[in-house]
């Protein structure tokens, strides 16, 4: 949630392959949390598809690259995170005429 709140267009969480977790069920728990969070993101109109969970082993570079590309393509399809747009609007200085009026 925090990266998306800061304006990230997409986030993916990478866990070990299912059954290979050092903490036994840590990756399954993470998956459940990701699912929960996706529902909240859908309800907020940000889109649950901006968040994804992938499973791979630490030595599996090709899969990592494939997932990164997959996520990249998905983000391009979804467009910018509405929060990023909202944050940019917030930061934008008021129009010149308004600034002059205040001065």
């Amino acid at each position: 949630m925090r990266p998306l709140e800061k304006g990230a267009d997409g986030v993916y969480v990478v866990g070990c392959r299912e059954g290979d977790c050092h903490y036994n069920s840590g990756n399954f728990r993470a998956k459940a949390r990701v699912e929960q969070t996706r529902k909240v993101l859908d309800a907020l109109g940000i889109g649950g598809r901006r968040l994804e969970m992938f499973n791979l082993s630490s030595s599996d570079g090709p899969s990592f690259a494939r997932y990164a590309r997959e996520m990249h393509d998905r983000i391009l399809e979804l467009g910018p995170n509405p929060i990023r747009t909202a944050l940019a609007k917030k930061k934008k200085p008021p129009p010149a005429e308004l600034q002059a009026a205040v001065a």
Partner: peptide, 10 residues
């Protein structure tokens, strides 16, 4: 808190 912040930001 994060969800509420995102809601109001939008």
């Amino acid at each position: 808190a994060s969800a509420l912040r995102m809601h109001f930001l939008q």
